[in-house]
Simulated assay, not measured.
Amino acid sequence: MHKPALPLEGTDTFNDRIRIVLVETTHSGNIGAVARAMKNMGLGSLWLVNPKSFPDEASYARSAGASDVLDRARVVASLDEAIDDCVLVMGTSARGRKVPWPVMPPPEAAITASEATAGGCVALVFGRESNGLSNEELQRCHHHIHIPSNPEYSSLNLAMAVQVMCYELRMHYLRGLEAGEGSPYLKPMAAPGDAGWDVSLASVRDVEGFFGHLEQMLVDVEFHRRDNPRQLMTRLRRLFQRARLDEMEVNILRGILTAAQKAAGKQGAHSQSAGDDAPAPGQEKDHV
């Protein structure tokens, strides 16, 4: 038995006016993999033109929980049936043509497809695993989509090609949310102060206290000489300021410095040189 469908998140399922059309798919497992790729990116309209085998256990097994996309899939006998009510048809193609045809890479194709849904359904057409779309089928498309893969190994698995386009469609959708009400998906979380970071950014006072403590510890272990400093502290300052420490990280580092001073028999030596708010012994453990 195939896996039950995982629930679609209503707010992340978008634009059923964009349909993925697969032409004469040979391997039913690829149909399941395409359904999974679609559901990953919030798409659910799948049309199958004369598939060799569908539905079957292989397609549902490969869908990995996207069985609802397969349950809704429309099976038709010809490409005409799949695209007749569409206002825009875009077909994937890796081949050059004697007669030039409008062609665009996936990001631009996603924008064009999304904007066209304001007037009706849009079809993104993918061909056979072995030889893609025929010339006649490509001529039914308003635009061709070319995925700029490695020219020395340019053939993509069907589901991979669909995934590329579904990803670009989703990115365009999320950028639209970000420009409007806001989208949590595209906002980075790379440093303290970013939304979602668990600890506040350390203050200048905290960081300066750490630098004073660090210098004293380096003196205590005879690694650094204040009478001949060279550029040691300047470079260490540059290193740690580049890291943008948060409050917990400062406390952890100062705990390490205190432990090093204790091991060197210099515990408490820093208290006079820093003259600041060094954490008491063991305090840093409360923050780990």
Score class of each variant (00 low, 15 high):
216 Q>N: 12
119 G>H: 15
270 H>R: 08
153 Y>W: 13
17 R>N: 13
50 N>E: 06
148 P>T: 07
61 A>R: 00
266 K>G: 03
210 F>K: 03
227 D>T: 13
106 P>C: 12
260 A>G: 02
96 G>T: 10
234 T>M: 07
162 V>E: 10
153 Y>T: 08
201 L>S: 05
79 L>C: 01
187 K>R: 13
50 N>H: 03
149 S>W: 06
188 P>F: 08
102 P>W: 07
192 P>T: 04
236 L>H: 04
156 L>M: 15
62 R>H: 10
169 L>A: 10
256 I>E: 04
192 P>G: 05
190 A>N: 11
6 L>Q: 10
139 Q>G: 12
123 A>H: 07
265 G>D: 06
163 Q>L: 14
242 R>T: 14
244 R>S: 07
207 V>Y: 05
102 P>L: 07
46 L>V: 05
271 S>V: 14
252 I>H: 02
15 N>S: 08
276 D>T: 13
70 L>A: 00
11 T>Q: 04
51 P>Y: 01
118 A>H: 14
38 M>E: 11
44 G>R: 02
29 G>Y: 00
185 Y>E: 15
16 D>V: 01
18 I>T: 08
194 D>G: 01
174 L>W: 06
132 G>E: 09
52 K>L: 02
188 P>E: 08
62 R>Y: 10
31 I>S: 01
202 A>K: 03
252 I>V: 12
187 K>M: 08
233 M>D: 03
22 L>A: 01
25 T>Y: 00
5 A>R: 00
227 D>P: 02
265 G>N: 06
212 G>T: 10
173 Y>M: 08
286 D>I: 08
36 R>E: 11
221 V>P: 06
251 N>S: 09
107 P>W: 10
275 G>W: 08
216 Q>H: 13
220 D>E: 13
31 I>A: 02
222 E>V: 08
230 R>H: 10
228 N>K: 13
58 A>I: 02
198 D>V: 03
191 A>C: 06
190 A>C: 06
24 E>W: 01
118 A>E: 15
65 G>D: 09
171 M>F: 10
223 F>T: 07
29 G>L: 02
262 K>L: 10
151 P>C: 09
130 S>K: 10
150 N>L: 11
160 M>G: 12
30 N>F: 03
134 S>I: 05
136 E>Q: 09
111 I>H: 12
37 A>Y: 06
195 A>R: 03
4 P>F: 11
188 P>Q: 08
108 E>C: 07
127 G>N: 06
248 M>T: 04
3 K>L: 15
109 A>T: 14
